[in-house]
Design a protein around this nucleic acid. Structure first.
Length: 558
RNA sequence: GCGGGCGUAGCUCAAUGGUAGAGCAUCAGCCUUCCAAGCUGAAUGUUACGAGUUCGAGUCUCGUCGCCCGCUCCA
């Protein structure tokens, strides 16, 4: 094994990051000023790659979507919505209230916890919790074991003035019972009034649904809880809000009335335009609205190269269908999306659809599948895309918030005259995540090659499709090569290079992931053939110099 | 956000508190008839940033920023 060969997953990731930077795929943003965490720039090769990702998606999902289940016809249309929207959008969607993580720190051991995780555990000692509690109460590892009254008391503190005896289902619980019951009731209300489809999409109903009123009511009490890490009491700070939305101001005046947000997801722009699209395009259920665009989340701790960035791009479809067919469409899109990744060179063994447990789902949601990919930086597959069954939640939420009626955005079936609010299936993919996946998937190390590192991009994604080289820059070879290059570049992104040794030029193309190189050599003048060099196995064949474009089209399948 | 580690040329790294260097990569020229070859030359730095100690700081001290690792977090 060569000493430069990657030896660990982390080593591989470092080499990939280095190659991305060296060859102009991805740079850290604002590097000349020391950089800024969570923001990335795409260089000359990276922007071609990322455009190819987006164009493949737009072409395959919007302009030429696959036939539906049982050959069902459906329409797909696109939109491109503004990044900044009326803040009411984010109130209706639940992001303003719910798109934040209230956190507490332990002053003793410096550990940090989500505030809601501290009190959820305590409910596990009650058996009169609502049935749907049982599953998510055990969500927290600390509490899964907290089945004894004593352990519950650990959390509550032992101040006698706080203790109240509560008999419940034969179990005698000694703690501040009325507070406890308040919590139970409040939490039940929060679940029933759950108004945050997005925040609830991947969180259990108990999490992230806390609002200011809750903290105002229980602020003092919560700081008395024991720290789950070091078990010391009274060391926790008050819960603090960590809102993940970027704020800005519209207009010159910077006050609360001008506050606005950079969108944390592109989906809401589609919902907000649902009626506009319906009224202007003659689409009929079932149909989809697609959008590619930037979104912003002020992540606490961006990591793993571009995987978790603060500014990122999404490719989202909101597919509207009749409630009776929603399950079918959900399964359809889940399968379509997995196949799409495979069609672009992602090996199926590195892809994993992970269906969320029914217990984890929000109460209005029928299903959600994360399509995950095994990146080199992790032992566990990480989310590339979420295919969510959102039910009629979003349209009803906006209908109620904007028009005062839940069914304001209902549609009418012409045949049956049935009036209904469509259900929504949402395949939501991360452009940067798949771009990164295509990079890590393409990265190949073969110590037997003169240039061991090369990028085995799928032809559709390769930033440069071909290069044209004169073997040496004399003997009339450049004069033959240049016209071939000029012809090819009309149809494909191509490069011409006559400098330095042929091996070095091949190596550079290997790192850029260029599938084919056409080399004009001495034989070209004799019999009119050029050498085609294949990136993946460095093999060579001869074809007539007039057939380069035809050969490329054939091989690339484009 | 916490703890630990690290910041010198594009990359990998040198330089006892005393003139900031090498290899690779890049560029130019020559050479070269298929895989990062060779020769000659060139360019490349406010040593992350900012203070302090010192006659003198890449080197010692402090702060800031960034990156990496581990926690934490990831609607």
């Amino acid at each position: 094994m060569s000493k430069n060969q990657p030896t660990s997953t982390n080593d591989t990731m470092q080499k990939i990051v280095a190659l991305c930077r060296r060859r102009g795929f991805i740079f850290g943003s604002s590097e000349i000023y020391g950089g800024i965490g969570g923001f990335w720039d795409y260089g000359p090769l990276g922007v071609e790659l990322k455009r190819n990702v987006k164009e493949a998606w737009w072409n395959d999902m919007v302009r030429n979507p696959p036939p539906g289940p049982d050959g069902t016809e459906y329409q797909m249309v696109g939109v491109d919505c503004s990044i900044i929207m009326n803040p009411k959008v984010w109130e209706a969607s639940g992001h303003v209230g719910g798109f934040s993580d209230p956190m507490v720190d332990c002053k003793e051991c410096k550990a940090r916890f989500r505030a809601d995780k501290l009190w959820v555990p305590m409910h596990s000692v009650f058996h009169n919790v609502p049935p749907n509690y049982s599953s998510w109460v055990l969500h927290d590892a600390n509490c899964a074991e907290a089945d004894s009254v004593q352990e519950a008391q650990e959390y509550l503190g032992t101040d006698p003035s706080r203790e109240v005896q509560e008999r419940s289902g034969g179990k005698k619980v000694t703690l501040e019972a009325h507070r406890f019951l308040d919590l139970c009731k409040m939490q039940q209300q929060l679940i029933e009034q759950q108004s945050s489809p997005s925040s609830a999409r991947r969180r259990s109903p108990s999490e992230g649904s806390l609002n200011d009123a809750f903290f105002l009511a229980h602020r003092d009490w919560m700081t008395q809880l024991g720290c789950p890490a070091c078990k010391k009491r009274g060391k926790l700070t008050e819960p603090r809000e960590f809102n993940l939305m970027f704020e800005t101001f519209v207009g010159a005046l910077q006050d609360s009335t001008s506050k606005a947000y950079l969108r944390p997801e592109t989906a809401q722009g589609i919902f907000a335009n649902f009626k506009n699209v319906m009224d202007s395009t003659r689409v009929k259920i079932p149909f989809g609205i697609a959008q590619i665009g930037k979104a912003f989340r002020n992540e606490i701790n961006p990591r793993n190269f571009t995987f978790r960035s603060r500014e990122f791009e999404q490719m989202e479809i909101e597919f509207f269908c009749h409630p009776d067919t929603s399950r079918m469409w959900y399964e359809f899109w889940r399968d379509v999306r997995i196949k799409w990744y495979e069609s672009l060179g992602i090996k199926s063994e590195k892809l994993r659809p992970r269906e969320q447990d029914e217990d984890d789902l929000a109460h209005y949601s029928d299903a959600c599948t994360d399509i995950e990919y095994l990146f080199p930086f992790s032992d566990e597959p990480q989310e590339l895309e979420g295919v969510a069954h959102r039910g009629d939640y979003d349209l009803k939420a906006h209908g109620k918030s904007a028009k005062g009626k839940e069914n304001a955005f209902a549609v009418i079936d012409d045949a049956t005259h049935e009036r209904f609010v469509p259900h929504v299936i949402e395949p939501s993919a991360g452009v940067d995540r798949f771009t990164l996946a295509s990079i890590t998937e393409a990265y190949t190390y073969d110590e037997n090659r003169a240039s061991p590192e090369f990028m085995k991009f799928h032809p559709r994604l390769a930033p440069i499709k071909a290069a044209v080289f004169p073997l040496v820059a004399k003997d009339g070879m450049p004069e033959i090569a240049e016209p071939i290059f000029r012809e090819l570049k009309k149809h494909f992104p191509c490069q011409y290079d006559a400098k330095q040794s042929i091996g070095k030029r091949y190596a550079r193309m290997d790192e850029a992931g260029t599938p084919f190189c056409f080399t004009i050599d001495g034989q070209t003048k004799d019999d009119g053939t050029v050498t085609v060099r294949n990136r993946d196995d460095a093999s060579q064949i001869h074809i007539d110099k007039s057939k380069c474009l035809e050969y490329l089209r054939d091989q690339l399948g484009l």
